[in-house]
């Protein structure tokens, strides 16, 4: 247990080892370590960002889906309304047409009636004269009575 030059030798060895460690051993390992740390941190960051993006995209997709559903129902509603409207219109048209036809027919019928009436009126006079001739068996001044009877027929 003598103190001797070993002391100095050991100090020198220590100095050399420390120098070597500072110069050649520590930097590459420490650098690699910190770079990996950074890489992992970046990766974790990216992952969390991606999951956030995914969440956002999902939300967006849901939103779009909701909107399109709404739109579809709107369109359907519109179509329904339009079709009922069209049916209504067609019905209206049909009724108007029918009414027009009925009115036309009625007018024709009236015309017929009038014509028949005219004819009847025209014939009533002759019939009456014939009837009167028969009844009276006498000759009557046809001209004078005719006027009278025409007047009578016109009053019908």
């Amino acid at each position: 247990m003598n103190i001797n030059m070993t002391l100095i030798g050991q100090t020198i060895a220590f100095a050399i080892f420390v120098w070597f460690c500072i110069k050649y051993v520590w930097p590459p390992i420490s650098t690699a370590l910190h770079e990996r740390q950074k890489k992992i941190a970046d990766g974790l960051d990216a992952a969390s960002r991606a999951s956030r993006d995914l969440e956002l995209a999902q939300e967006q997709a849901a939103q779009t889906l909701r909107e399109s559903k709404e739109q579809a129902s709107q369109i359907l509603d519109q179509a329904n309304k339009r079709s009922s409207q069209m049916i209504e219109e067609a019905r209206e048209q049909a009724r108007a047409e029918g009414e027009r036809l009925v009115a036309g027919a009625r007018a024709e019928i009236n015309q017929e009636i009038n014509r028949a009436k005219e004819e009847l009126r025209a014939q009533v006079a002759s019939l009456a004269i014939v009837g009167a001739e028969r009844v009276l068996e006498a000759s009557i001044d046809e001209k004078a009575h005719r006027k009278l009877l025409d007047k009578l027929a016109a009053e019908l």
């Binding site: 060895a13 080892f17 070597f20 051993v25 590459p28 390992i29 690699a32 370590l33």
Partner: peptide, 21 residues
């Protein structure tokens, strides 16, 4: 002691040379 020091530095230096991220 020098052998141990060299062993230490050699091992760590080797690891440092091969260090990857």
């Amino acid at each position: 002691s020098i052998a141990m020091g060299v062993l230490f530095l050699g091992l760590f230096h080797k690891a440092g040379r091969m260090a990857t991220t």
